[in-house]
Computed example of a mutant assay.
Amino acid sequence: MQDHSGRIAVDGLSKRFGTVEAVRDLGFTVEPGLVTGFLGPNGSGKTTTLRMILGLVVPTSGTALVEGVPFETLVSPGRVLGAVLEAQGFHPSRTARRHLLVCAAAIGVPDRRVDEVLGLVGLAADADRGVGGYSLGMKQRLALATALLGDPRILVLDEPGNGLDPAGIAWLRDFLRGFARSGRSVLVSSHQLAEIGQSADRVVVIHRGACVYQGELAGLGGGRRGRVLVRCAEPVTLAQALVAKGLMEVDTLPDGRLAVGGADAVLVGDTALAAGVAVYGLVEEQVDLEQLFLQLTGGVAG
């Protein structure tokens, strides 16, 4: 029975295409009020998973439920979930307004909603231009407008930042955050790791069809911290002083520098000063989302 929660629940989801196992026993949830980032290298099974959620691909096993039921059994699905899998398929000579009017009629929403969504995505001034003259970024905005026509509780987006300039990406980030803050759900697949790091509340990372991490963004990578890289006159003496302070993650790099995990530059510098070791350079290196992603997926960026 449909529960109107705005929740997506994937459980034990698998899909085989002949001998190829595209998705393996995948499980995760998308909760209302949050932006959930869906990350993985090219070919990891992200798009196949999204297509199973949307009822476009039949799972080999497992379930993908939208508000407690399979997508194809939803009542008025366009009012429940809006999706953008690719910004293609627009008739080149049709205007954005005409395209949206056709789609609005198909899902049973009033024509006035067309102007509302055109304003939401920043296309009001270009609404009567032929879509064939649109840039890729403008087509992305039009695809998003189409997904928003039914004022859905859930958005599912596959690489929505493709073709957007930096201002457009910033706009998209703010829009998705606002959508989620209104109590609705966002599932966004992307390879733009730095952007996901700025917009997602939680992430699901898959590799070769299987989940390798899901949870809050802050917990990605098991709490791995940054490190300080230090070049000094007496690395052995400094390493001993750092260990004496309880800093056990001290390694010597091939170039002779020390890498000190779990510390900041002030602590390392003060320790060197107290030990009488001359320091020639200190660099704080933060572990970013891309580094963690590469570690989780075996160095395959996609």
Results as ranks from 00 to 15, higher is better:
Val66Phe: 03
Val277Trp: 07
Leu120His: 11
Leu289Ile: 14
Gly150Val: 05
Pro59Phe: 08
Val35His: 03
Pro32Arg: 07
Gly130Ala: 02
Ala124Asn: 07
Gln214Pro: 05
Thr63Asp: 12
Glu284Met: 09
Phe175Ile: 10
Leu242Asn: 07
Gly40Pro: 00
Tyr280Gly: 11
Ser182Thr: 10
Gly209Ala: 11
Met248Ile: 10
Ala274Ser: 13
Ala127Asn: 08
Asp251Asn: 14
Asp126Phe: 11
Ala210Asn: 12
Phe90Asn: 00
Phe38Asn: 03
Met138Gly: 02
Leu123Tyr: 03
Gly262Pro: 07
Leu267Lys: 10
Val23Leu: 05
Ile169Thr: 05
Arg141Pro: 00
Ala104Gly: 02
Arg24Ile: 12
Val117Asp: 02
Thr29Pro: 01
Leu267Ile: 10
Ala125Asp: 15
His207Arg: 15
Gly27Met: 12
Gly6Cys: 01
Thr49Val: 09
Gly108Ser: 11
Phe175Ser: 01
Pro92Gly: 01
Asp288Asn: 12
Ala9Ser: 10
Gly55Trp: 06
Gly223Tyr: 15
Met138Cys: 02
Asp251His: 13
Asn162Pro: 01
Asp201Lys: 13
Ile107Pro: 02
Gln286Leu: 15
Gly183Asn: 05
Asp255Val: 01
Leu142Gln: 02
Ser182His: 04
Gly150Tyr: 01
Val58Glu: 11
Glu159Pro: 00
Val156Cys: 08
Val156Thr: 05
Asp165Pro: 00
Arg208Ala: 14
Arg227Phe: 14
Gly246Ile: 14
Met1Pro: 00
Pro110Asp: 10
Leu258Ser: 07
Leu54Trp: 12
Ser93Cys: 04
Leu81Tyr: 00
Arg224Ala: 11
Pro166Ala: 15
Asp264Arg: 08
Val203Ala: 13
Gly222Ser: 11
Leu258Gly: 01
Glu234Ala: 14
Glu216Tyr: 06
Ser5Glu: 12
Arg227Trp: 15
Gly262Leu: 09
Pro235Leu: 12
Ala147Met: 04
Phe175Gln: 02
Phe38Trp: 06
His91Ser: 06
Met138Thr: 03
Val102Asn: 00
Ser61Glu: 13
Arg112Cys: 06
Gly183Cys: 06
Gly40Ile: 08
Pro160Ala: 07
Val20Ser: 14
Leu242Trp: 13
Val212Tyr: 01
Pro166Tyr: 14
Pro254Phe: 02
Ala64Arg: 01
Leu164Ala: 02
Ser5Lys: 14
